[in-house]
């Protein structure tokens, strides 16, 4: 028999499905919701409902958005001819933090991963190719992760995107700013040396 009333058990069970939430954390969160005001609890329920009801993928770049096209694709102040390709929508936030990139994005929603059975056909590439074919793009920046899967994705895309007049670039890899060369691993150091620039 459950230790809690049925609605509480149901809430705990639902919260347990979230990543990184175990039984104890789920219980703690459930009791926090129980103790919060009706307005707060309703706001949480509405937020969860709205995420599912109102969010969709941008038809241009595949970013998660509530308006189509998304704010990056519809912006008139951003350079729409410069497109940065990322694996996940969360990667956009990391690039936006720099405040130095003013181009548009394209989200693949994954990377090629042979061990997980993910090939190029599972990625959202077709609308990127359409964008390129229509001549709307001057440069593509491939900002996939510096992993075997991310590299395979970047190399595959560079082959697919090769067109006269289109520049395809890959983000640089190397020593993180503020760290010490002494502690850099061999492969990071190798990539840093390969990607050196003239001063």
């Amino acid at each position: 028999m459950s230790r809690f009333a049925e609605p509480m058990t149901r809430l705990i069970d639902e919260l347990k499905k979230l990543p990184g939430i175990g039984s104890k954390s789920a219980q703690r969160l459930a009791f926090h919701i129980l103790r919060s005001t009706d307005a707060d609890a309703e706001a949480l329920a509405d937020a969860v409902r709205d995420v599912k009801a109102k969010l969709r993928l941008c038809s241009v770049c595949n970013n998660i958005t509530d308006v189509d096209p998304c704010i990056y694709c519809s912006s008139t102040t951003r350079n729409q001819r410069l497109v940065c390709v990322v694996e996940e929508p969360t990667n956009i936030a990391a690039i936006e933090k720099t405040r130095h990139f003013h181009g548009a994005y394209h989200v693949l929603h994954g990377s090629i991963s042979p061990l997980r059975g993910v090939g190029p056909e599972e990625l959202r590439i077709s609308n990127l190719l359409r964008r390129v074919e229509s001549g709307q793009v001057d440069e593509i920046i491939l900002a996939t992760n510096p992993t075997v899967d991310g590299e395979a994705t970047a190399v595959y895309l560079s082959g697919q995107l090769k067109r006269p007049g289109l520049k395809v670039t890959r983000i640089a890899m190397g020593i993180p700013v503020g760290s010490d060369i002494e502690y850099a691993d061999e492969i990071t150091m190798l990539k840093a040396m390969e990607g050196r620039r003239e001063l």
Binding site: I112, S113, P114, P146, T147, V148, D149, E151, A152, V155
Partner: peptide, 14 residues
């Protein structure tokens, strides 16, 4: 990662 990871190479490594 020391060499280019082409799609066929990535699948072969996998």
């Amino acid at each position: 990662l020391a060499n280019e990871v082409s799609y066929p190479r990535a699948v072969a490594l996998g």
